[in-house]
Amino acid sequence: MPHALHRRRAPGGPPDVRTLDALTITKVSVGPMDNNAYLLRCTETGSLLLVDAANEAPRLLSLLDGTPLSTVVTTHRHMDHWVALEAVVAETGARSVAHEADAGELPVTSDTVHDGDIITVGDCPLEVIHLVGHTPGSIALLYDDPTGIHHLFTGDSLFPGGVGNTRGDKANFASLIGDVERKLFDRLPDDTWFYPGHGKDSTLGAERASLPEWHARGW
């Protein structure tokens, strides 16, 4: 089983890298809110996709190493996940992608996606999973490695220890935990590795037994 990519280093620390057969995942924490940004590289084509241009545009651009960036996907509308988006898009010409319900809050014009849509990075497909509650247009991206396990980029909808913040709104919490349980835990196996918008990554199996506790506590 692969090791956790990020062991909660302070923002500004060196990136962590996981190499799969067809995809390389580079994870970097940017400040000041310990946001994770993920650069995905298709092995076959060299194509690049960035998940959340959260902050520190020069640092994110340095990860490209001169390779063109094709796409930036923003997992949700909260500003700490797109501070660097305008600068990265302006520098690279990459297209911006977000869910229709959140795209209007971003600082650049974005192509919109919906639940079940596929975003590609080279030869590697990423399935859009819409998870309503943290924001109306929060999404996760699922990569089903044909030679390995599932890899899931969850933004702020799922963390080790619970779902994302719904600020005490009972309806939003019910929506989010319902979507997370039905669309992620009920569908995907325990060895699915997930990468959140802040802090450490984990597996669904490590979190599954805690679902009743999350329901009971209401956050």
Score class of each variant (00 low, 15 high):
residue 122 G to E: 07
residue 30 V to T: 12
residue 114 H to Q: 14
residue 42 C to K: 05
residue 73 V to N: 01
residue 93 G to H: 09
residue 17 V to K: 08
residue 13 G to P: 00
residue 120 T to P: 00
residue 187 R to Y: 13
residue 205 G to N: 09
residue 211 L to H: 07
residue 31 G to W: 13
residue 161 G to P: 13
residue 8 R to S: 13
residue 155 G to I: 04
residue 43 T to K: 15
residue 9 R to P: 07
residue 205 G to A: 12
residue 193 W to N: 04
residue 82 W to F: 09
residue 113 V to H: 00
residue 87 A to R: 00
residue 154 T to R: 14
residue 69 L to G: 02
residue 68 P to L: 04
residue 84 A to M: 14
residue 138 S to P: 07
residue 48 L to Q: 11
residue 104 G to K: 03
residue 169 D to Q: 02
residue 21 D to F: 07
residue 108 V to M: 06
residue 179 D to L: 07
residue 46 G to I: 12
residue 93 G to A: 06
residue 62 S to G: 10
residue 146 P to L: 03
residue 9 R to E: 10
residue 79 M to P: 14
residue 85 L to E: 00
residue 39 L to E: 03
residue 48 L to S: 04
residue 204 L to S: 04
residue 205 G to R: 11
residue 137 G to N: 04
residue 29 S to Q: 08
residue 112 T to Q: 12
residue 98 A to I: 01
residue 38 Y to R: 10
residue 113 V to S: 05
residue 62 S to R: 15
residue 31 G to N: 13
residue 198 H to I: 06
residue 95 R to Q: 15
residue 95 R to T: 08
residue 198 H to G: 04
residue 88 V to D: 00
residue 70 S to T: 14
residue 201 D to Y: 05
residue 90 A to G: 11
residue 30 V to E: 11
residue 213 E to V: 05
residue 129 I to K: 04
residue 172 N to L: 06
residue 179 D to N: 15
residue 93 G to S: 07
residue 89 V to L: 11
residue 202 S to I: 02
residue 154 T to D: 15
residue 2 P to D: 11
residue 213 E to C: 03
residue 35 N to G: 05
residue 173 F to S: 05
residue 36 N to S: 05
residue 141 L to Y: 12
residue 46 G to R: 15
residue 186 D to Y: 04
residue 176 L to A: 10
residue 148 G to L: 14
residue 188 L to V: 09
residue 30 V to G: 06
residue 124 C to M: 01
residue 7 R to M: 02
residue 121 V to G: 06
residue 147 T to G: 13
residue 86 E to Q: 03
residue 148 G to D: 13
residue 97 V to I: 15
residue 165 N to L: 08
residue 76 H to A: 10
residue 106 L to C: 03
residue 73 V to A: 01
residue 121 V to W: 01
residue 185 F to D: 05
residue 49 L to E: 01
residue 74 T to A: 09
residue 173 F to C: 08
residue 107 P to R: 06
residue 131 L to E: 00
residue 154 T to M: 15
residue 152 L to R: 10
residue 14 P to K: 06
residue 191 D to N: 13
residue 131 L to D: 01
residue 184 L to Q: 10
residue 75 T to A: 04
residue 74 T to I: 03
residue 160 P to W: 02
residue 141 L to I: 02
residue 6 H to E: 01
residue 196 P to Y: 06
residue 1 M to S: 10
residue 58 P to E: 11
residue 21 D to P: 12
residue 164 G to H: 03
residue 188 L to T: 08
residue 186 D to N: 13
residue 79 M to F: 14
residue 32 P to T: 05
residue 211 L to Y: 08
residue 46 G to W: 14
residue 208 R to D: 13
residue 155 G to H: 00
residue 175 S to L: 14
residue 199 G to D: 11
residue 201 D to R: 08
residue 81 H to Q: 06
residue 216 A to P: 12
residue 213 E to N: 03
residue 104 G to T: 02
residue 131 L to Q: 02
residue 119 I to G: 01
residue 45 T to G: 09
residue 75 T to L: 05
residue 171 A to F: 03
residue 210 S to H: 15
residue 90 A to M: 02
residue 102 D to L: 00
residue 71 T to N: 00
residue 13 G to M: 02
residue 141 L to D: 02
residue 132 V to F: 05
residue 145 D to F: 11
residue 50 L to R: 01
residue 192 T to C: 09
residue 53 A to R: 05
residue 37 A to S: 15
residue 195 Y to K: 13
residue 53 A to G: 04
residue 59 R to Y: 00
residue 34 D to A: 11
residue 103 A to I: 00
residue 63 L to W: 14
residue 92 T to K: 00
residue 32 P to K: 12
residue 122 G to D: 08
residue 56 E to R: 11
residue 202 S to K: 10
residue 88 V to F: 04
